[in-house]
Each structure stands twice: as C-alpha cells, then as structure tokens.
Write a protein that binds this DNA or RNA. Structure first.
Lengths: 206, 206
DNA sequence: CTAGTACCAGACTGTTTGGTTTGTTTTACC
DNA sequence: GGTAAAACAAACCAAACAGTCTGGTACTAG
C-alpha cells in the first residue's frame, strides 16, 4: 500500500485515487478527510494485528508447560515471518509514529492500544515461565513482553533497509533462542525435544 | 528536529526556513534540493551514530574476558539511554526507511552502511563470547548482532508511541539480561561480579 | 411513476509546495 | 580601496495539494 511505502504526508489523495481507480467525489463521500482515511486504515490494521496476536495465543492454548508455551508462542511468529515474504507490506505503525503530529489523536491511540494489548497478553504467558529460572526472575515481565513488539518493529525496519524479508525471521529466531536460553536450565545437554520436563523439578532454589 | 518529528515528506522547506530563521536564497545556495539536505542530514547522523558505536567499543577495549566484554558493551548503551531522556530526538533512520522512495539512493545507502557497520563490529565482540556456552553456539552471531540494532529502532518507536524515554532503557536492559543468561553458565548462583571466571573452565563439552 | 437519497465523477478553488530569479550585502584578497 | 565571489534575502513561479461544488446516475420506497 502507498502509505506503507512512502509515509502518510508524502502520499497524496490524488495518488490514492489513481491507485484505487476511483474519483475524488467518491473518496470524500466516504471519508471526511485524508486524516479520516488514515484513522480507518490504522484501525483496520490494528484489528488484523490483534487477530494475529490471538492466533499466536491460540496456537499454544493447550500447552501446559509454561516455558514450552512461551517458546511455542514465539515460534508461531517465527513461522509467520515466512509468510511475510510474499506481501512486502511493512508495518503501518511506523509511519503513524513517524508522522504522529499530522494525524488524529485517535490514530496514535489505536497504535498505543495495540502495543499495550500485546504486552498484557504476552506477559500472562511470560510470568509463570520466568519464575522457573534464576535468570528469568531477574527480568521484568513487562519489559520482555514489550521486547517482542520492539523486535517486530526493528525487524520491519531492517527488512526495509536491507531489501529482504530475511531479517524479520532472523530477529524473531534470535529472540526465541535468547528466551530459550534464559528459560531452559539444562540448555542443550539432552536434545531439547526429548527432554522430559517436570522430572527435574519445579523451580530450583528460590 | 523537524524531520525527526514529522518525517521527511511532511516537512516543508518553508517550515525548515522558519525554524532556522533563514531565507530561501540561503537554503538553495547551500543545498541544491530538499533531497540534498536530507542526504547531508542523514550522513551527519550516521557519523554521530558510528561514533557512538566506536565509543561503546572503546569502553570495553581493555576487558579481556569475551563475555564480560559483550555485557559491558551492552551495558554502555543501557547507560547511554539515560542521556537520551533530555533530547527527545528520535532516530533519523526511521523516517528515511519509511519514505525511502522519496529520497536519494545515497541516503538509503548511508543507513544501510550504518546497519552493516554495527553488525560487523559487534559480531567480532560476540563471536568468542558465544563460543563459550552451548546456548550461545546455537545462535548466529550476525543475527544477534543485528538484534541490537533492531532493539534500538524498536525502542525508539516504543518511546515515541508511549511518549516516554523509559522504553529505550528497558529494551536495552532486557536485551542485556537475555544475552547475559545465554552467555553466563552459572547465572545468579554467586554474585556475578565476585565470580572468578576462568576457574570453572574454558568451554564445556565438545 | 415519482421523490428522495446514497453514490459517484470530475471540474474547480485557494493554498502550499519545491524551486528560481533578481538583486543586495558581506567577505576575501590583492 | 577596488573587485570578484560567496552568502544571503525575498519576490516570484508553475505544479501539486487537500478539499469543494455541481451535476448526474442508480437504487429504494411509496
């Protein structure tokens, strides 16, 4: 989409009309202003984004081990990054935050809501998992939850600069590996999948 | 700066002139176009950014332990995030990448150069440290090096959305904690500073 | 069939845009 | 102190901009 490619201020209504093959009359009949289009666009984007969050949560809903749940959750987005390859979309949040002053407050608020929703949902997954290791207990759950969002956005930017979809997958993978090393006590000793968790106990020490 | 606040396309030359309290004649005497200003601005920004990289490397130049060197390096930027509070600047790379099509190729290339320089410099620090643990050996050094850059950019965006400088520090801290958990085998058992590294051996296994 | 309304096309408008031109001031140098 | 060039100011311009207006079509209800 145009706004994703060039930003909001740099995309003219005329360009949008050309791309959509429609007329000015039609446009301003449906949106009261250019800002209103941006708001609608972003709100729709947030909905899709939060649906993706729900999908990730769903995918680990019946995993009982907290650590596996977290790693499965992260793994879900790692796989999803593959699909990202085809549509070189880019994240709408970035132009919104870059040009926040040009947009309605409601638009910026929608993005903020998305960030906070990711945080509160992921943190409930994260909290019990972090409690299982000494390293995990040093980490603020909120901050690590936010780190997933930060990794998404950083990944989007790197993909754009390096003109490749690879960095997104790489960044999500390395995040999962770091979290894995933090949450898995006997990392790499037996093969991870074969390890029977629960045998070597609940939380060590305290 | 204006471009940092609103993006490139959304910032007019007239606005810049007003802020700089100068005239159009002066502006176009020094820059052949608006794009040329952007290029100059970004090139200067890249210089400052790479100087910050050099500072970080300097700060751990005489730390001999590879793991401590990596953690010290990350700690350096965590402290630097504090200073970021005062000047609510925001990162120029973000508008450049958002509106890449409107700018000269040279501008985008400068950003790419910055990303790759961070990668190659950090990766030389990272490689020996990752070799010391099983978890570290699972991680691609390049990808973890890029993850610092991604964290910076993600941090900038979160700061902007949440209107606070706190997320940057939080994200850098959580990154250091994750890396620390990955690289430090006996995490949290003795106090980290008191631990005499080298006693419990070089690399385990293999 | 008529009347009202949602929908749409495209000409039009006042403003703002990046950029140019013309002319004036400052600086540097012999 | 004369002069050439660099530095600047501001009026000016064509194109592009967001948004409006007029007029017309398609549909729905009575």
């Amino acid at each position: 989409m145009l706004v994703e490619r060039n930003g909001f201020g740099a995309t003219s209504v005329d360009q949008i009309l050309a791309e959509a093959r429609t007329s000015k009359g039609a446009f301003f009949h449906h949106f009261e202003s250019k800002k209103a289009l941006a708001r609608a666009l972003v709100e729709r984007y947030v909905d899709v984004d939060l649906a993706l969050l729900a999908q990730g949560l769903d995918s680990v809903a019946n995993v009982e081990d907290p650590v596996d749940r977290v790693l499965g959750f992260l793994g879900f987005y790692e796989c999803w990054a593959q699909e990202l390859v085809s549509k070189d979309s880019g994240c709408l949040y970035i132009p919104v935050l870059t040009e926040r002053d040009l947009l309605d407050d409601a638009t910026a608020v929608a993005v903020e809501r998305a960030i906070l929703t990711w945080r509160v949902e992921f943190v409930t997954l994260l909290r019990p998992a972090l409690a299982t290791t000494a390293a995990g207990r040093c980490i603020e759950p909120d901050e690590l939850a936010d780190h997933l969002f930060a990794t998404f956005e950083g990944g989007y930017l790197m993909c754009r600069s390096l003109r490749s979809a690879e960095p997104m997958r790489a960044q999500l993978r390395v995040l999962r590996q770091l979290v894995s090393a933090t949450l898995v006590r006997d990392f790499g000793l037996p093969t991870r999948s074969a390890r029977a968790r629960g045998i070597n106990g609940a939380s060590p020490g305290r």
